[in-house]
Design a protein around this nucleic acid. Structure first.
Length: 885
RNA sequence: GGGCGCUUAGCUCAGCUGGUCAGAGUACCUGCUUGACGUGCAGGGGGUCACAGGUUCGAGCCCUGUAGCGCCCACCA
């Protein structure tokens, strides 16, 4: 059976993709090449949460990483891509709690140990699922290096860091006002709060003075917190309230006596210039309270209900209480007026519940000092963001950094390695899993809280390489080279990794940060579960293959920009795969099974051979440059254009005459180049579309082919010959062919009818190119024969004309053509050329242009002028001749 | 309140350090059963590059301002 008969007519991704992936994996291609002397290249995968399944964001993120890694591997680096998953404490715990709730189980009922058993079972189930999904899109990561943020090594790193920071005084425990989620029942960090505008009200209240001399008016958006007011503040510079500073007020409904304090925090211009101070329920008030030593009265429970201390409102949630209190204030005559008011409200980024500022005992990381070297690393260019503009984003956050609240009232996560002695109050922070009180020798109780998920993610670039052990991996692969991630987690993750890298490794965690945007739906909306507008990458893969999906995600997109996901991009990818596949089939079809391409003789290369090689040479050097600059969208479109237009539409078509003529003396050279050029193209395309390219590559007849495209050497432009002169000649021939096609189409000349053509040109080289190129003309423009002459003598009036940059082409027609139609067409052509000519002449007649523009630019304009002048003359001549008939 | 981004053919988007940059795909119109592919081939129409100034010999590309949209950050009760 001939080779071609063993090749399917269409490429079937569902069959080929899993097969090829397993093959690559079993051959160990995803692992770093241990050959000595190879330079290392490494990246770590942003670990997907174990809560979910692959979504478009992951697909994009991993496609970009895979492109990068496959490119570097082919470039000859010993390449490591570390994959893994994140335990995602709050998100996972929420999911498990929710699942349990459906069964009627609450976590308090089963206890910590049983709960964690469930959580690990969850991890096994869903963590495994997402790994399988990552494989489906073709991720060439080293699965033998796979990690999990809560595995033994990562957990050890977490403890190491905690203890170290603690001993350095960079971690402390303290009672602060933090962001509390009444739904998740835990503290969250500043970064985890999302602000949104909400319509609300502004209630103007009057608080009576104790001495009965009147009242002060103030306004609040949260009247229910009045229960916890311990003062009212005014600005010390405010003349209006000078006299009441220090006086006491009677808190409405509660009857408590509270002082009027003076504090700069109060804005004289805003509202009435009087602010009620509730230190327990507002971060600003907390600070004011601290400055004035005010009592902190907590009036809300963990789930944001009024405490038992206020029997009338006890058990009401904050919104019910608000209504009730407003009603009571009104009835008591304390409410002056109510205004509509929009304000910014913080919400939990996980569940969307409005955050409740709450005073509680939490662990914090002091960030200011730690941030300094991290800021410096970006400032001095040791770390570069691509695109650069995101550095502003980073600096914005880092320059104004707050202490990081790292304790979470959750069970799923790294339990804080701090131990307390219930007897003497001693605190011990240690990596040991148990601790005994150094003072009273009693067994100590471990802090029940866990750490913020991002605390462990921050260590990812080195914890995954074995830190704190001094491993070979660390030595070889740290710092990693590029981090690929979305702009939405620069503050959460990127900044904290840089901080951690500088603090523990004394070096940057990565050199480049490649930032990508969001994948939105076709209408530009964020994909979300609630909108139900998400597109499942796995469905796309099932339908059209991973290559098509990857193509769609990369094509026509610039770094850092959001993109809309359009189904027709998938189709483009699928069509393109099909195009490549058929090009390969054509090539193989025209190669004998025992073909030995190494016997091809480069000295026999023809004009089109040299032309295609020149194009390939340029493509390799340009695309490589684009790869180096992370300009994947640009690289891809150049590669596609070359394959589709240069190779398929022109080179293959032209090569047909040589292939079909078994006696053709340069047939072997054509066969060689068809295989070679397609092979190199596949290598360039491989990072984008790994599967089809492997399949095509393996079928080609290549001299010195690698056993797999993915470990083949990246094409080197210096090894591909370039023939600029021949390229120019070929370009002219092509424009002649286009002219002929154009007149045929425009004049409605049936293409099947072979035509005789007369070329008028003064240039002998061009004349020869065309006569030699008759086979091309025959195949590509249905030309039966060609005459060349230097002037227009004897051109029949019944010929249609085309003017192109190499001269004029006439196609005499047997039947008299419609002269008016032809004149119309020529007039249109003339207009075009005239426009060009005018523009060029305008430039050249401009004194300052000629004197100031660079030599090269002027020369190019002059050349254009000469060309257009000639073309203009030709076309007006022709119009004149026809007009006389 | 500060910062950033976007506004280019009907649609979705590329356009690097200013001089073939006015492009691609798609949609549209006209042809094509040409021995790889109709998931294709050939030809064509379509944009004063949001608006107003400025710098320059020359500006989607640089500067200033305006408008619309989007995002990030920020303690104004």
């Amino acid at each position: 059976m001939a080779k071609i008969d063993r090749i399917n007519k269409v490429f079937d991704p569902n069959e080929a993709e899993p097969r090829l992936y397993n093959e690559w994996m079993s051959k160990g291609y995803f692992k770093p090449d241990e050959t000595p002397g190879k330079e290392a290249f490494s990246i770590v995968m942003p670990p997907p949460n174990i809560t979910g399944q692959l979504h478009m964001g992951h697909a994009l993120d991993n496609t970009l990483q895979d492109i990068l890694v496959r490119y570097k591997r082919m470039k000859g680096y010993s390449t490591l891509w570390v994959p893994g998953t994140d335990h995602a404490s709050i998100a996972t715990e929420a999911k498990i709690v929710e699942a349990m709730r459906k069964e009627g189980i609450f976590k308090e009922d089963i206890g910590r140990e049983k709960f964690l058993e469930r959580a690990w079972a969850w991890k096994e189930q869903y963590g495994g699922r997402i790994v399988e999904q990552l494989k489906k899109i073709g991720s060439s990561c080293d699965w033998s290096h796979e990690r999990f943020t809560m595995d033994e090594g990562c957990s050890d790193a977490v403890k190491e860091v905690f203890v170290k920071y603690y001993n350095q005084g960079l971690i402390y425990r303290g009672e602060r006002i933090i962001n509390w989620c009444p739904h998740c029942l835990t503290s969250i960090s500043n970064a985890e709060v999302e602000y949104e505008d909400q319509a609300g009200h502004f209630w103007h209240l009057r608080y009576p003075l104790e001495d009965g001399s009147g009242y002060v008016e103030l306004a609040t958006t949260r009247p229910e917190t009045l229960l916890g007011d311990t003062a009212v503040a005014v600005n010390p510079k405010d003349e209006r309230y000078k006299d009441i500073i220090g006086k006491m007020l009677i808190l409405p409904l509660v009857g408590r006596k509270i002082p009027v304090v003076a504090d700069d925090y109060v804005d004289i211009e805003f509202g009435t210039g009087v602010v009620k101070i509730t230190p327990a329920h507002d971060p600003n008030d907390f600070e004011v309270g601290a400055r004035h030593n005010l009592e902190i009265i907590n009036v809300l429970t963990e789930d944001a209900k009024i405490t038992e201390d206020y029997p009338k409102y006890a058990g009401m949630d904050r919104y019910e209480a608000r209504k009730a209190i407003v009603k009571d204030l009104e009835e008591g005559g304390y409410l002056i007026k109510t205004e509509d008011y929009n304000h910014n409200v913080g919400t939990c980024y996980r569940c969307g519940t409005t955050i409740e500022p709450r005073v509680s005992l939490q662990w914090f990381v002091k960030m200011e000092e730690l941030a300094k070297p991290a800021i410096e690393a970006v400032k001095d260019g040791r770390i570069k963001f691509v695109p650069e503009r995101f550095e502003k984003n980073y600096f914005n956050w880092m320059n104004d950094i707050r202490d990081w609240c790292i304790s979470r009232q959750l069970w799923w996560g790294h339990q804080i390695p701090a131990f307390y002695c219930d007897d003497c109050g001693e605190i011990v922070v240690t990596k040991d899993s148990e601790a005994v009180c150094p003072k009273c020798g009693k067994k100590m109780r471990q802090d029940p809280d866990t750490l913020d998920t991002w605390f462990s993610s921050a260590l990812w670039p080195f914890s995954t390489l074995g830190w704190p052990e001094k491993t070979e991996d660390l030595k070889k692969f740290y710092p990693t080279d590029t981090l690929v991630t979305g702009y939405d987690i620069i503050t959460f993750w990127v900044s904290r990794m840089i901080v951690a890298g500088m603090a523990h490794m004394d070096d940057v965690p990565f050199r480049d940060v490649l930032i990508h945007g969001l994948v939105r739906d076709s209408q530009g909306r964020k994909m979300s579960k609630s909108l139900g507008n998400g597109i499942d990458p796995l469905e796309i893969i099932e339908k059209s293959g991973a290559d098509s999906l990857r193509f769609a995600l990369v094509t026509g997109n610039a770094p850092g920009n959001d993109q809309r996901f359009q189904e027709d991009k998938i189709e483009m990818g699928r069509n393109f795969s099909n195009k490549i596949w058929n090009a390969m089939r054509f090539v193989i079809m025209n190669c004998e099974d025992d073909l030995d391409v190494s016997k091809a003789d480069p000295s026999k290369f023809t004009l089109e051979d040299k032309w295609v090689l020149t194009g390939l040479n340029r493509l390799v050097s340009e695309a490589t440059a684009n790869f180096e600059k992370y300009e994947y969208g640009v690289a891809l479109s150049k590669i596609v254009d070359f394959i589709w237009e240069t190779f398929c539409d022109w080179y293959i078509e032209i090569a047909k005459s040589r292939l079909f003529d078994k006696e053709c003396p340069t047939r072997l050279e054509a066969q060689y180049l068809l295989n070679y050029v397609l092979g190199v193209s596949m290598q360039l395309l491989h990072p984008f579309m790994p599967f089809v390219t492997e399949e095509v590559y393996s079928n080609l007849f290549l001299d010195g082919a690698s056993e797999s495209i993915m470990i083949s050497d990246w094409p080197d432009a210096d090894k591909i010959p370039s023939f600029p002169e021949d390229e120019k000649t070929m370009t002219i021939l092509m424009s002649g062919i286009r002219s002929i096609r154009n007149i045929r189409a425009e004049m409605g000349v049936v293409p099947s009818r072979k035509a005789h053509v007369i070329l008028v040109t003064a240039d002998d080289t061009i004349a020869k190119t065309f006569t030699d190129g008759l086979p091309f003309l025959e195949r590509l423009a249905s030309v039966s024969s060609i005459d060349t002459q230097k002037d227009k003598a004897g051109i029949p009036a019944t010929a249609v004309a085309a003017v192109f940059e190499g001269g004029e082409i006439y196609m005499p027609l047997e039947d008299l053509i419609d002269i008016s139609k032809e004149l119309e067409r020529l007039a249109k052509e003339k207009e075009k050329i005239e426009g060009e000519l005018k523009r060029v002449e305008g430039k050249l007649s401009n004194e300052s242009f000629v004197s100031k523009a660079p030599e090269k630019v002027i020369a190019a304009e002059r050349e254009k002028q000469a060309k257009y002048t000639e073309m203009y003359k030709s076309i007006t001549d022709r119009i004149e001749i026809l007009s006389k008939i």
